[in-house]
C-alpha cells in the first residue's frame, strides 16, 4: 500500500515535470519564432545590401578589366561575394528551436515515465508527440540543408499545438482503457503522429508555394519577405517530396489501425468516424498525388487538394475526437 502510494507520488512528480517542460518549451519556441521573424523582416534590407555590394564588385573589377562580361567571370572565380551575410537572428532562432525541441521531447519522455506506457493515450499526448515529431523532423532536415527560411513556418504551428495542448487538451496522467492496452498503440499511433508531423511541414510548404506564386506573378504587393524564400517551383517540389514520405506512412497507419481493430473490435473495418476520416484523408492525398500528374491540371489546383487534405487532418483531430460518437473516443476531455 505504501509503495503504491509512493509510486503514485513519483508519477505525479514526473507528470508535473513533464508539464513544466512543455511550458518551458513553449516559451523558448516563442522566442525562436520571434528570432526567425526578425530574420525574415531583415531579408529585404539584406537583399538590397547584397545587390549593392554586387554592383560595387562588378564596378570594381570592371574598372580593372575594362570589360563588363569579363568582370562577371572574375567575380565568380574569386568567389568573394559568394560569402553570404551572416544571419545572426536566424542562427539564434535555430539554437532556440533545438532547445525548445529538447524540452518538448523531455515533456513526452517524462510523461511516458509518469504513466509507465507510451504517452499516446489521449488528445493531449497525441498533440505533444505530434508537435515533437514536427520540430524534430524540421531540425533533422536543417542538418542537411539550409532551411532557416522555413523556421518560422514550422515553429509557429508547433507552438500553436503546444499551447492548445497545454490549455485545451490537457488531461491528467492516468492509465489506459482496456481497448488501448496493446502494443499496436505504439505502432499505429506513433506512425500516425509522425505522418501528421510531415503533413504539417508539407502544408506549410504548399501554402508558401501558393503565396510565392502570387508574389512572382506580381499580383500582390504584400509578403516582401517571400523574396528570401526559394522560388515557387522549388517550394512546390519540396512540398511534394515531404508529402510522398508522409503518404506511405499514412497508408501504413491505415493498415496498422485495421489490424488493431481486427484484434480489439473483431473487425478490421467498422466505418467508425475516425476510420472514415482516416480514409477520407488518405483519399484526398491520393487525389493530390494524382492531380500533380494529370494533364491539364496545374500545380496550383493540386496544391489546393493538398491543403484540403490538411484541413481533413485538422477535422479528424479536433472535431472527430471530441464531437463524433465512435469507438475512438479517447480524447480524455
Amino acid at each position: 500500500m505504501i509503495t503504491q502510494m509512493l509510486a503514485r507520488e513519483t508519477s505525479t512528480a514526473l507528470s508535473d515535470a513533464s508539464t513544466n517542460s512543455l511550458y518551458a518549451s513553449a516559451v523558448v519556441l516563442t522566442l525562436a519564432m520571434l528570432s526567425f521573424g526578425v530574420d525574415l523582416a531583415q531579408s529585404p534590407a539584406r537583399a538590397a545590401r547584397e545587390s549593392a555590394r554586387r554592383t560595387t564588385v562588378v564596378q570594381d573589377s570592371a574598372d580593372g578589366a575594362g570589360d563588363g562580361s569579363t568582370a562577371v567571370l572574375t567575380r565568380t572565380e574569386t568567389g568573394e561575394p559568394a560569402v553570404p551575410e551572416k544571419r545572426q537572428w536566424a542562427g539564434i532562432g535555430m539554437s532556440l528551436s533545438w532547445l525548445g525541441a529538447f524540452l518538448l521531447i523531455a515533456c513526452v519522455v517524462l510523461r511516458g515515465a509518469a504513466v509507465h506506457r507510451p504517452p499516446l493515450g489521449n488528445m493531449y499526448e497525441f498533440a505533444t508527440v505530434g508537435a515533437a515529431f514536427t520540430i524534430a523532423a524540421y531540425l533533422l532536415w536543417s542538418l542537411k540543408r539550409d532551411v532557416r527560411w522555413l523556421g518560422i513556418f514550422v515553429v509557429g504551428p508547433v507552438l500553436l499545438v503546444e499551447m492548445l495542448a497545454a490549455m485545451v487538451f490537457y488531461t491528467d496522467a492516468t492509465q489506459l482503457m482496456p481497448s488501448l492496452k496493446s502494443y499496436w498503440l505504439s505502432i499505429h499511433v506513433t506512425v500516425a503522429t509522425l505522418s501528421i508531423a510531415l503533413f504539417t511541414i508539407g502544408f506549410s510548404l504548399t501554402l508558401l508555394h501558393l503565396i510565392q506564386e502570387r508574389v512572382e506573378a506580381g499580383s500582390t504587393e504584400r509578403f516582401a519577405f517571400m523574396k528570401a524564400l526559394p522560388s515557387s517551383e522549388r517550394l512546390e517540389r519540396l512540398g511534394y517530396s515531404v508529402h510522398i514520405i508522409a503518404f506511405p506512412l499514412w497508408t501504413f497507419t491505415l493498415i496498422a489501425g485495421a489490424i488493431w481493430a481486427q484484434e480489439a473490435w473483431g473487425h478490421y473495418w467498422n466505418w467508425d468516424p475516425k476510420e472514415v476520416w482516416t480514409f477520407v484523408i488518405w483519399v484526398v492525398y491520393a487525389a493530390y498525388l494524382h492531380a500533380r500528374v494529370t494533364a491539364g491540371w496545374n500545380s496550383r489546383r493540386a496544391s489546393y487538394i493538398a491543403l484540403a487534405g490538411f484541413a481533413c487532418i485538422i477535422v479528424n483531430y479536433c472535431v472527430v475526437n471530441v464531437f463524433f460518437v465512435g469507438q475512438h473516443s479517447y480524447s480524455g476531455l
Binding site: P273, V276, W277, V280, V283, V284, A287, F324, G326
Partner: peptide, 10 residues
C-alpha cells in the same frame, strides 16, 4: 468518394 464518405461519420 472522400466527400461521400463524410456523412457516415456525422
Amino acid at each position: 468518394l472522400a466527400i461521400a464518405a463524410v456523412p457516415g461519420s456525422i
